[in-house]
Design a protein around this nucleic acid. Structure first.
Lengths: 139, 139
DNA sequence: ATGACTGCAAAGACTTTGCATCTTT
DNA sequence: AAAGATGCAAAGTCTTTGCAGTCAT
């Protein structure tokens, strides 16, 4: 009794939208982005497909930033930077840990590691500059 | 016009509860745990103090697990393991990255890194065993 | 045709907030 | 007494769901 998967145009558009951006979108972003081309898209469908794609391993959650869950269409190893000022999430493609780390942790602690997530938190370039501007104005 | 901080008994109890456990509690956990000794405690107060302590750097958010934000009273460098089956969050005190990594990222990408968070995701020992039991029963 | 997928709107779950009251200093 | 902290409950946000209708195979 296998459940067969059917590919609807909306489902394909949702995955494509996520994989086609590096902004690590939220459900709302996907919805707003596809609204013009798919006027009858509903937010519920976006949420349902987000879960569907995660279960299939096509996308991964980067975590919840300011109340919004953010997703990543790239599932190969890389790290993230999250701006605590504006909420931007960006890839740090050059930063990644040794391949064997997951296995090391599994063996050392006796648990089963599927993947890891390394994220740096701080203030992004843009916000640093904006802050500088504010200081200039105040001085 | 400095805002002076006043230490209420409830505020102290909330911080103490968080720092006195390694379960990486949620707001609800803190509330339920303190309820017996502080019958008139309100959830709003817990949430307000969670924000207060985060701003002061006394505690840190570990992230949102299954819809509940989880906190850590230990702010020295260490990693976490998050069980995707039961939602448990545990410390991996022996796993931590090189000290200079934050600085490296700052310089390499031109942004300001405050801290990083490394979390491993998978299935914990307990859930592995429970799964084994289920399989035994089914076979 | 059958079973999946979707739209819509209601329901849920967690968190934030306003205001009057109580505490700490 | 003054200003901060809390209780309570209402309001807010984001996400999940039930159900009837639609679409893919």
């Amino acid at each position: 009794m296998e459940r067969t998967t059917r590919y609807s145009k909306k489902r394909a558009a949702i995955l494509s939208a996520i994989q086609g951006t590096d902004c690590h979108p939220s459900a709302e972003w996907v919805y707003q982005t596809l609204k013009p081309s798919h006027p009858d898209l509903s937010l519920g469908t976006v949420y349902r497909n987000l879960i569907f794609f995660q279960e299939r391993g096509d996308i991964r959650s980067v975590g919840v930033v300011r109340g919004h869950e953010r997703f990543d269409g790239i599932t190969t190893p890389h790290s993230h930077f999250i701006c605590s000022r504006c909420g931007a999430v960006m890839d740090l493609s050059q930063i990644e840990l040794a391949d064997h780390l997951d296995r090391d942790v599994s063996e050392q602690y006796g648990l089963m590691v599927d993947y890891h997530e390394l994220s740096f938190h701080g203030v992004c370039q843009t916000c640093i500059q904006n802050q500088q501007h504010e200081e200039d104005i105040l001085s």
